[in-house]
Computed example of a mutant assay.
Amino acid sequence: MIIVGGEALVDLVPDGDFAEELPPLRPWLGGGPYNIAIALGRLGEPVGMLTRLSTDRFGEKLGERLREAGVDTALVQRGPEPTTLAVVELDENGAARYGFHTEGTATPLLDDPGSLPEGTEAVSFGTLGMVLEPGASVYERVLLRAAERGTFVALDPNIRADLIDDPHAYRRRFLEWLPAVTLLKLSVEDAAWLAGLDSETESEQLFAALRDWLARGPSAVVLTRGADGMAVLTSAGEFAEVEAARVPVVDTIGAGDTIQAALLAWLRRAGALSAAAVSGMGTGSWCEALRYAASAAGVTVSRSGAQPPYASEIADRR
């Protein structure tokens, strides 16, 4: 089983023409880790989620959707605090920006779950779960304990800079996680932010940062580049890149989360959920894994909100 740790929230997404000054907002169930868990379930992988949900109506719907996707909810905690909200702004290309309402909500108030279920093959963390305290410290402890047991650790920082009060402290903490991480996946924008570089930085400076992070522990770093596709660097020196799926883009909500889930699904099916296996993958295998992830993300961006694909939908597009 793959355990996904992090927030579950509600995205309030504009529902109307981009030209409207104030379009109505439609609630979509989401949150980076939540989307990863849903995507893994829809892809047919055994998955459980570690999170805290509100007992309000949004929280009930979040839990209901997890169960519908086949996600194990044994580690889901509940509380009376309201559900975290994210107000989404879309530009003319469907790219999303988020404004978060987190104060006093259920998201950060996670209790340490102790030991993970027997048979946990991998864990995945990121986004608000690794930022909002006190829950961030809980997820960090779970991540480090998993790594100590030799469990595969996936990390997608999915930076939300507006919620990071002290960027320097977060960057130091990120570097401290790396020795425990097996697969690091991040966007160009996140990589630039974490490296303290401008988003328009020359690619060689960015790849120098990726190589530095690789040297600190991960077996591979996957870099997503939006419409320019994605690339991977491995600790063994392998490099591969693939194009993005060519589809009409409605919005990009959940695209990166779908990529993370699809990569984990591909690796699990290939028997590659280990540091040695990931390090040993050649460019041919990596291209296959990345194309699978790109195809999955192509389904997600072709429809509104974070709606990850089912396995059959990816097969239809390959």
Rank of each mutant, 00 (worst) to 15 (best):
S219K: 03
N158W: 01
A69G: 09
S304Y: 05
Y34R: 10
E176L: 12
R26I: 01
I164Q: 14
D162S: 13
P248C: 03
L132F: 00
M49Q: 13
G298T: 08
V138N: 11
A296D: 14
V232I: 07
L163G: 01
A39H: 08
A215F: 08
R65W: 04
G114E: 10
G114K: 10
L163K: 05
A296W: 10
V301K: 09
E176H: 09
E202A: 00
V153I: 03
A262R: 01
S115V: 11
T83G: 00
L53V: 09
P309G: 07
D156C: 01
M130F: 06
L109P: 09
P157Q: 03
A227Q: 15
A147F: 01
V47P: 14
H168V: 14
E103W: 07
S199F: 01
G284A: 05
I314G: 10
A208C: 05
L273Q: 04
D56H: 01
A244I: 11
T105K: 07
D198N: 06
L155T: 07
I36K: 07
D111G: 01
L194Y: 04
G254I: 10
A37M: 09
T51M: 08
R160D: 13
P33W: 06
T201H: 03
V153K: 04
T73N: 02
L116K: 11
S279M: 14
G135C: 03
R67C: 02
L116R: 11
D15L: 01
R52G: 00
D56V: 01
L163A: 00
T105Y: 00
A215R: 15
E140H: 06
G30L: 11
L264F: 03
F207Q: 14
E243K: 09
L178V: 12
A245D: 14
R160H: 12
Y170N: 12
F18C: 09
A192H: 09
G59S: 10
Y292G: 02
P117H: 09
E189V: 10
S187I: 05
A19R: 15
T258R: 08
T252A: 07
G229N: 10
R317D: 05
E68R: 15
A227T: 12
P24E: 03
V299H: 14
I36A: 03
T258F: 02
Y139T: 15
D198Y: 00
S274L: 05
F174H: 08
W28T: 15
N158V: 02
R42S: 06
L263C: 02
D228V: 04
V222F: 05
G114D: 09
E238V: 15
S312A: 03
E60G: 02
V88W: 05
G30W: 06
